[in-house]
Amino acid sequence: MAKILIVDDMASMRKMVAFTLEGAGHTVVQAEDGDIALKIAREQSGFGLVITDVNMPNMDGITLTGELRKLPSLKFTPILLLTTEAGTDKKMEGKAAGATGWLVKPFDPDKLLMTIKKVLR
């Protein structure tokens, strides 16, 4: 089971994802925006996956992805972007910044769990 960092400014989404992942036995650390997430990523180690929303105040998910990739501990860690289907450009931007993949809203707990199987080692 992995330690997963989930970043979303919307508490409802963040908690839903956290609840689902915890229910599946993972350890979850939550962050409200990119700034906080980056701070957590610098202070803690052992993350097996990062799931981040794209649209966030302070630091958006794509900038965050770029920053996380600079940290040796997260260089090869999967990073998934939460996005909506309209955000094709964002997906590409996210990939360019180093994102592993994306999770398209709407998603339900099952889809979430299936998706992360693709990247969890």
């Binding site: 090869f76 860690t77 999967p78 180093g98 994102a99 199987k117 693709k118 990247v119």
Partner: peptide, 8 residues
Amino acid sequence: ITGNDPAL
């Protein structure tokens, strides 16, 4: 480099 793994 993007965190993807062919094996998975």
